[in-house]
Design a protein around this nucleic acid. Structure first.
Lengths: 202, 202
DNA sequence: TGATTAGCTTAACACTGTTAACTAGTTTTG
DNA sequence: CAAAACTAGTTAACAGTGTTAAGCTAATCA
């Protein structure tokens, strides 16, 4: 059965090279500016071949979306060793922001674009669920130790996440023009610091 | 010169009816799903006529974007009568969220879409500046009265705005799936309440 | 009256995602 | 071994997008 295996490999090789081409184009041009034809051109196949391996354009980017979450997950899992939950939470905030700044187009796909979410099978956003639960658990520990004055860990996690996300996305979407020029460069870092000050009950 | 006046009026009438058609279509389908041809069809002119009145599609929506800020401004200006700056800030948060929920497509154009910002003349986001300054002023008053433990009013305003924006946009972009179903319905209201609790130093 | 101009249209360009129909080449089956 | 069936890719096409160049008609000006 060596031949069948080879064929299977060739099939998954092409699938992989579609994803590679998609990722490369996506990283330089973003989701909407990357067309199925661009991807096809890059791998030197006809555009319709793409549709033999992926249902539609969105499905390709759902895969990249998952890739993004694996990357973010790796950045986060390192921080699980931090004992103090409050310190861990702060480190998570810094890591999240850093990930967003280092991978703005991935971040967009993960948290802004509707496309990958829409092409989800059972309205079950596994990638997002996993990341959120880690945050929620950390916040629950902070509350337990009296380090954070949230009433509900889940809602608290949502608030913390929203603040981080809001800062990142206002920046990416050019809405930080309202900030005075000298503060604009590292407004997100300043914002995070102010937010952390807010969190800690002194 | 009555004829010239009438002609001028007719010209601005058509311009206005382009905006009316654009707004109507935009409100039911959103920015990207509204095409120049759709707008032209609605006013029963050829698509190219649109380009005699607007530079491009984005310029049309910059106008609607400004309209959105006028609406938000009206909701905010009412709250200027609230004496206590902390109470005013809370009211502003509620008003902002309510505006977002009542006008999701407008909100998208104002705070998410890059299109209107890109077609800005001198990188001068007047509409945004105005709204932000009102928030910053209120927060400055809160800090002065010791009601808020931010160090910098501008950065503080950015943090508060980010939290509100983050909550709204995570919700609109279907990222609140991670929240348990029973809390999902009014997660933004719950989030706002938790955030307000966080703000007040007791 | 003849030239100019304002206001709009038709036709076209270069794209987009996606599908149907087709063609080689390989594999399986009678 | 020949015929049928399946595989993996293709071409052509559909229906749409934003946008521009060129053309036309009717009013206005000299």
């Amino acid at each position: 059965m060596g031949i069948i295996e080879r064929k299977e490999k060739e099939k998954s090789d092409l699938r992989k090279s579609i994803l590679d081409a998609a990722r490369e184009l996506f990283l330089e041009k973003g989701y909407e500016q990357t067309s199925v034809r661009n991807i096809a051109e890059k791998i030197e196949y006809s555009p319709t071949t793409i549709y033999l391996y992926f249902k539609d354009k969105d499905s390709i980017f759902l895969e990249l979306h998952n890739e993004g979450f694996r990357m973010l997950g790796q950045h986060m899992s390192v921080l699980m060793h931090v004992e103090d939950p409050m310190e861990r939470l702060k480190a998570m905030g810094r890591a999240y922001i850093r990930f967003a700044q280092d991978n703005p187009v991935f971040y967009d796909l993960m948290f802004v674009q509707e496309a990958p979410i829409c092409s989800l099978d059972h309205k079950n956003w596994e990638a997002g669920d996993g990341a959120f639960q880690i945050l929620e658990a950390t916040i629950a520990q902070c509350i337990e130790k009296g380090l954070l004055k949230f009433k509900d860990a889940e809602v608290g996690a949502f608030v913390v996440w929203s603040t981080m996300h809001g800062m990142c996305i206002l920046n990416f979407r050019e809405r930080c023009m309202v900030i005075s020029p000298e503060k604009q460069a590292d407004i997100i870092e300043s914002g995070l610091n102010e937010f952390i000050r807010l969190l800690s009950p002194e």
